Amino acid sequence: QKDIELLKCKECGSWMRPNILWFDEYYDEKTNKKFSSLKVAKNSGILFIVGTSGATNLPMAIAETTLKYGGTIVDINTEDNLFTKLLKDKKNKITIRATSTEALKTIHEILHNVVQEEKK
């Protein structure tokens, strides 16, 4: 019962909405930024996919759009997924099979070192 109360607004008592897509919903601009995210994907040089399988339409469409316009995809997941199939024969991909914590920490360290070298 206490867990249910945590899902309600303390001010008005209404259910709070997590930023997710429920099974009976569809992607739109208001709740999921569908069109603006595809526009950003079109103009992205690199897309990081972290901890998701690609089982829903919008994440897959973002990845497809990034590839279509020449961007690189970095797929960080602990196992192969639907993005693995999408990226199979692509040259502009980096696949990292590790936890997001491990992979992003390493990427942060690499980028930090590159910035430090550029300052010299």
Rank of each mutant, 00 (worst) to 15 (best):
residue 104 L to I: 07
residue 62 I to E: 01
residue 43 N to I: 11
residue 70 G to I: 00
residue 9 C to W: 00
residue 29 E to C: 04
residue 45 G to L: 11
residue 66 T to Y: 06
residue 16 M to A: 02
residue 46 I to P: 02
residue 84 T to R: 02
residue 65 T to L: 03
residue 33 K to E: 11
residue 77 N to W: 08
residue 118 E to H: 15
residue 44 S to N: 00
residue 37 S to C: 09
residue 120 K to M: 15
residue 108 H to F: 15
residue 39 K to A: 09
residue 102 E to D: 13
residue 27 Y to A: 00
residue 73 I to Y: 01
residue 60 M to C: 07
residue 34 K to H: 12
residue 2 K to N: 13
residue 80 D to M: 09
residue 13 G to P: 01
residue 112 H to K: 15
residue 96 I to Y: 03
residue 93 K to M: 06
residue 1 Q to T: 14
residue 57 N to Y: 15
residue 89 D to R: 12
residue 109 E to D: 15
residue 82 L to H: 13
residue 62 I to N: 03
residue 60 M to W: 12
residue 89 D to H: 11
residue 96 I to D: 02
residue 79 E to K: 12
residue 96 I to E: 01
residue 25 E to H: 04
residue 82 L to I: 07
residue 42 K to W: 04
residue 21 L to M: 08
residue 29 E to L: 06
residue 94 I to A: 07
residue 37 S to M: 08
residue 6 L to K: 15
residue 17 R to Q: 09
residue 21 L to I: 12
residue 76 I to E: 08
residue 6 L to H: 12
residue 80 D to H: 12
residue 112 H to S: 15
residue 13 G to I: 07
residue 11 E to V: 14
residue 51 G to M: 09
residue 101 T to G: 13
residue 38 L to P: 02
residue 115 V to F: 15
residue 88 K to L: 10
residue 75 D to M: 09
residue 62 I to M: 03
residue 54 G to S: 05
residue 63 A to V: 08
residue 35 F to K: 15
residue 43 N to H: 10
residue 14 S to V: 08
residue 66 T to H: 07
residue 71 G to A: 03
residue 114 V to R: 13
residue 99 T to G: 05
residue 93 K to H: 05
residue 86 L to V: 06
residue 76 I to K: 08
residue 58 L to K: 00
residue 119 K to R: 14
residue 103 A to Q: 00
residue 72 T to D: 03
residue 86 L to H: 04
residue 83 F to T: 05
residue 72 T to I: 12
residue 24 D to I: 09
residue 114 V to H: 09
residue 109 E to R: 14
residue 80 D to G: 08
residue 72 T to H: 11
residue 50 V to G: 04
residue 97 R to A: 10
residue 50 V to K: 04
residue 109 E to S: 14
residue 41 A to F: 10
residue 61 A to T: 13
residue 10 K to C: 11
residue 46 I to Q: 07
residue 114 V to W: 13
residue 86 L to C: 03
residue 3 D to S: 08
residue 21 L to P: 05
residue 62 I to Y: 03
residue 65 T to K: 05
residue 66 T to F: 06
residue 109 E to C: 13
residue 38 L to E: 01
residue 68 K to Y: 10
residue 31 T to A: 13
residue 79 E to N: 09
residue 87 L to D: 00
residue 41 A to T: 06
residue 77 N to P: 05
residue 120 K to P: 10
residue 106 T to P: 08
residue 22 W to P: 06
residue 98 A to K: 13
residue 36 S to C: 09
residue 89 D to A: 04
residue 86 L to T: 02
residue 14 S to Y: 13
residue 13 G to M: 02
residue 62 I to W: 03
residue 80 D to V: 09
residue 82 L to F: 14
residue 72 T to N: 07
residue 65 T to R: 07
residue 35 F to W: 14
residue 106 T to F: 13
residue 87 L to V: 02
residue 110 I to E: 08
residue 81 N to T: 06
residue 91 K to V: 10
residue 81 N to D: 06
residue 80 D to E: 10
residue 94 I to E: 04
residue 105 K to M: 11
